[in-house]
């Protein structure tokens, strides 16, 4: 490569696994694996939908770009998981995203929590990114090669999300009195929905080594958060866990509004392509 075309504005798409590759493949997951992929896909989809709101509203323009990158990563993960699930359910990623009803979604409650202020968004992202990092770093060894491949790509991106949210937790917790107050409030609002992430159920039993057992992620996540919280002089909020149920289609009041907005146009034009 000559020096001239290797400038700092050189751009390439890279060669990572793309959602389109999953969609184009003919790998068919079992019904159980498809159900599991729905859970992972819905988590990322719903959070990406939330984060997209910040683009053009972030505290500083650099953060518009940063949050945009995170949302784009998540929507990529969602598309891969949903495309794969779709192969098993005879549906496309868009059928699943736009034409399922609320009880058919499989996201945990944490992902649909409102953005609130920047501190609350960061609190949610902190938990999600640590959870997803531990999850994907194990799922990349799944006996299901497609799940493993998606996780192997996602884990690197989520690692960066983890760093992003940790940096902000430190700054907000140790910045000003106002930011500290908001950070603590944000964590408190987030914490009731942490427990649900680590609940095992029958599907997990059935899947065995194809999936990652959520309860095994609790200790590593807790331990990483504990050291961050120590540095940020924060405490784990002492709040009771909310009743979950998202994995089985029992959702909070938030999801209906989110879906109404996300799905409105697609549903106005059933069968249309875009």
């Amino acid at each position: 490569m000559s020096e001239s075309n290797a400038s700092a504005t050189r751009t390439t798409p890279g060669n990572a696994l793309r959602p389109e590759d999953i969609a184009a493949s003919d790998l068919k997951p079992s019904t159980d694996v498809a159900e599991y992929a729905l859970r992972l896909g819905d988590d990322s989809l719903i959070l990406a939908q939330r984060l997209g709101w910040w683009i053009s509203r972030a505290p500083e323009l650099e953060e518009d770009v940063a949050l945009g990158n995170i949302a784009l990563d998540l929507i990529g993960h969602a598309r891969s998981f949903l495309s794969y699930a779709g192969h098993g359910l005879d549906k496309t990623e868009d059928d699943l995203a736009y034409f399922r009803r609320e009880p058919e979604f499989r996201c945990a409650h944490l992902f649909v929590q409102p953005n609130g202020d920047f501190a609350r968004t960061i609190a949610r992202q902190l938990v999600v990114s640590h959870y997803q990092f531990e999850l994907y770093s194990r799922l990349m060894h799944s006996t299901d090669p497609t799940l493993a491949a998606i996780a192997a790509k996602a884990v690197k991106e989520v690692d960066y999300h983890r760093d992003h949210s940790s940096q902000w937790v430190l700054r907000l917790a140790l910045g000003t009195d106002e930011s500290r107050r908001r950070m603590i409030a944000g964590l408190k609002l987030t914490w009731p929905y942490v427990e649900e992430l680590f609940v095992d159920d029958q599907l997990i039993d059935t899947l065995g080594d194809a999936a990652v057992r959520p309860s095994t992620l609790r200790a590593p996540v807790d331990s990483l958060l504990a050291s961050l919280f120590a540095e940020a002089e924060l405490e784990i909020p002492a709040v009771p866990a909310a009743v979950g149920g998202g994995r089985h289609g029992k959702h909070s009041e938030h999801l209906g509004y989110l879906l109404a907005e996300m799905q409105v146009l697609a549903r106005e034009h059933p069968g249309a392509t875009w």
């Binding site: 959602p19 989809l45 990406a48 939908q49 997209g52 709101w53 683009i55 945009g68 949302a71 784009l72 929507i75 990529g76 969602a78 598309r79 949903l82 990623e93 868009d94 995203a97 736009y98 907005e261 996300m262 409105v264 146009l265 697609a266 034009h269 249309a272 875009w274």
Partner: peptide
């Protein structure tokens, strides 16, 4: 962004 009618379009628009 929130109402983009397909996930591909949503990602592109974002």
């Amino acid at each position: 962004i929130s109402r983009a009618p397909s996930l591909k379009r949503k990602a592109i628009l974002m």
